[in-house]
Structures are given as C-alpha cells and as structure tokens.
C-alpha cells in the first residue's frame, strides 16, 4: 500500500503541471498525501461530490483534513469495489480482518464525514459485532468512554438487570 501511495504522489506532481488530467479527482489527506481517484469514486463519497457540484467541477483537488493517509486507501478500496459491484461477504470479511479496533473507529468516522452509505452500513455492523457479548468495561475502553456513573448508580444498574452482566466474552483488548 505504501508503494502505491508514493506512486500516486509522483503521478500527482506530474499531473499538477499537466492541466489535461483534470478529469481525475485529487483527495488530499490530513497529512498532505494526495490520492488521485476516478470521478466515479468521488461520486460514492457524497461529501466530495457535493463539493465538486457546488464548484461546477472547476475544483478537483479536495482537502480532507480529518482523514489520514492511513485510512483513505481503505475508503478508496471499498468505493472501488462498490462501483465494480464486487462487495461480497468474502471481501467484507477480508476487509475487516485487516482492521484493528482503532482503525474501524477511524474508518467509521471517515465514512460518516464523507457520507458513504454502503461503507457506513457495513461498519455499523462491524462496530455492533464488537459491542456484542462484550463486557461494559471492554466497550468503554473500545470507544474511549469515561464512566460517568457514581459507584452507587452503577451498582444499582447492575443489580437491577443482573442477568445481562454474566456470560460475556473475555475482555481481550483487540480480537485481531
């Protein structure tokens, strides 16, 4: 993937001096890496597409300051597969296997920001799968959530519905 990125960077530096390549869209990650994608890919990203539409297609370099160069290739890969109609259960299983918990969260935020519906649906399921059958403590750590209950409140919650707090998976930090 790293090589691919650098090759894309090279092609960008050429394309900047070459106005004929304006058909492609350049997505600039938060850490200033440029990814060139086909306009069809941009169409999958509603946020990007609406920006292009608003400027009547005059601007084709789009800064995405809150998406890192680490996450953007995943997003692009998913969109490419989606356009090609090749989103299969197998592909999704392979795709999610590559991601650790932190990456899933980042991708979800990226997909939400870019407003890519299919990727959001898929990642919703992935996140739900990572809440399912986990302890409360695990979910707090996974989502970085501070426990803001008083010890009394928490004890009361647990007492009232004790049957939900048994039999969860062991708290492994990261299943991958």
């Amino acid at each position: 993937m790293a090589e691919e990125v650098s090759s894309q960077m090279n092609s960008l530096s050429i394309s900047e001096t070459n106005p004929s390549s304006s058909a492609t869209i350049s997505l600039v990650s938060g850490d200033d890496i440029v990814f060139k994608v086909e306009p069809t890919i941009a169409k999958e990203m509603e946020t990007v597409q609406s920006f292009i539409d608003e400027t009547d297609g005059k601007i084709t370099t789009i800064p995405l300051p809150n998406i890192s160069s680490h996450d953007l290739p995943y997003v692009i890969e998913y969109c490419e597969k989606s356009i090609a109609g090749k989103i299969t259960k197998e592909f999704e299983a392979e795709f999610v296997k590559k991601l650790n918990n932190e990456e899933v969260k980042e991708l979800f935020l990226a997909a939400n920001y870019l407003n890519i519906k299919k990727l959001l649906d898929f990642l919703s399921q992935v996140i739900a799968d990572r809440i399912a059958n986990k302890s409360v403590e695990y979910v707090r750590r996974y989502f970085g959530i501070e426990n803001d209950f008083t010890p009394e409140e928490e004890a009361k919650l647990r007492e009232e519905l004790a049957w939900t707090f048994t039999g969860v998976d062991p708290d492994d930090e990261d299943e991958n």
């Binding site: 919703s124 739900a128 809440i131 501070e146 519905l161």
Partner: peptide
C-alpha cells in the same frame, strides 16, 4: 444505526450501563 445491528437484548442493557449518555 449501529445499535440496530445488536440483536441480543443483553447487549442493549449492557450498553445502557456504559455511560450516562449511552
């Protein structure tokens, strides 16, 4: 959307004990 993918009520109850906003 995320929570609608949870299909065990125990998961929902535990989620309700994560924080006051949950």
């Amino acid at each position: 959307k995320v929570f609608s993918y949870l299909d065990n009520p125990r998961d929902l109850v535990r989620a309700s004990a994560v924080s006051s906003s949950w």
